[in-house]
Design a protein around this nucleic acid. Structure first.
Lengths: 222, 222
DNA sequence: ATTATCTATAGATCTATAGATAATGC
DNA sequence: ATTATCTATAGATCTATAGATAATGC
């Protein structure tokens, strides 16, 4: 009854790996992950039964358990895929060379637009990360690492232009401005639970006010 | 096996009422609600078994079901109590007469401090509201009504002082500023899932920067 | 007599496995 | 021969109830 096992997977960088040796194996894993991510995002993880995941992927429950050791492994695989995709998306825009010759308003505008676009293309991913992160320490730290990379990278881009910042304490101001921008975006993206008074204003007007707010707080110099 | 019942409770304003006719009945209900709220806030609702709620309240599972029709009723009772308490707390500070002769910075400072104090005294209430609100439409609308009352009330307090607002569109600016303030606070209060770059700065410094940001964006005139 | 509480357990739901069947690739 | 998939179901967990026992208040 025990499961001594080789205790693999806890030492490697990633907690889940594909072991398929036939092409259809990958297709099934993708279908299961797609189904799981969609159901987790809309109904929540606890409320989603693994049989429903298999059903949504047009596979059997036995096939699901052939690919994933248990429900937790499936959940972590979904989280890994989401975080890996997000990290790939933010990598290029965080490079200083990508913004050579451009100013803080350009950077802020792109940040806001990119965040809005990600949510549209992958609705509800945040819900999954939160639900898992509240229980699993490894997911929580991976998620925080992603947020630190994103917020820290943006802060650095602003500080690279500190000669344009009139605020008496540019370092603190840059961090506060980025925190505020992130918070605003996450509130706007969470259309379900966070009511905002600017729900009916369109993305363009929202972006314009966000830029105006950052500029005013930083006391931006042209 | 059916439960025709008098179909009561769906028409009244509140979905759950105490039916106890002995003093100890109220004490048991309070103990069960306290236990439930604490467990729901720390572990989540789905992850909390009703037997654990009874255990935490030092009551039996049979006693729990004597007071609450089912788990959902218990959850809604907890939510009702949280929202009722929150509504009572914000009522006085939202009255215009409460701020006679005082300016926007005073109002913002009090708003930030009150929000921080509420979270400290009732840790994790937000998690309960979110988890229930994602599934229950009635809780979602009750929660949104609370947020609208809070954010809308604060916006009105700012607009009562529109002669001090230099922003070309004071109505939009007031709503944006309040949205931004709320978002910042909720991010700071959610110490678990929302990493911020100002985590290590204390409440006083955070409050000062929040006021500075609002003032700069609104182009506040003294 | 009524209300509240308890213990014990039925019933429902979900996760995970066993073992048979089908498809793939050397 | 190996890998992938399927059906059927065992086992675990949680919600909810039945029925007995204890406490309260007229």
């Amino acid at each position: 009854m025990d499961d001594p096992g080789p205790a693999e997977g806890t030492s490697g960088p990633r907690r889940w790996e594909s072991h398929g040796r036939q092409p259809r194996s990958q297709a099934t894993q993708d279908a299961l992950l797609d189904s799981a991510e969609a159901l987790f995002a809309s109904a929540g993880i606890d409320a989603t039964a693994v049989t429903d995941v298999a059903l949504g992927a047009k596979r059997s429950i036995g096939s699901l358990y052939h690919h994933f050791q248990n429900k937790e492994t499936l959940v972590l695989a979904v989280v890994d895929r989401v975080l890996r995709d997000l990290e790939a998306v933010i990598e290029t825009p965080l490079k200083p060379s990508h913004w050579h010759g451009l100013g803080i308003p350009d950077i802020v505008r792109n940040y806001v637009q990119t965040a809005l676009a990600i949510e549209r293309s992958r609705p509800g991913y945040k819900r999954i990360l939160v639900e898992v992160g509240l229980h699993d320490a490894q997911t929580l730290s991976a998620y925080k690492r992603f947020r630190r990379r994103l917020d820290g990278g943006l802060t650095q881009l602003l500080l690279d232009r500190r000669e344009n910042i009139g605020h008496p304490d540019p370092d603190t101001a840059a961090r506060f401005a980025v925190d505020q921008l992130s918070a605003m975006l996450w509130a706007r993206l969470d259309r379900v639970m966070t009511p905002t008074q600017l729900e009916d204003c369109d993305d363009e007007a929202f972006t314009a006010e966000a830029i105006a707010s950052v500029n005013a707080y930083l006391r931006l110099r042209e």
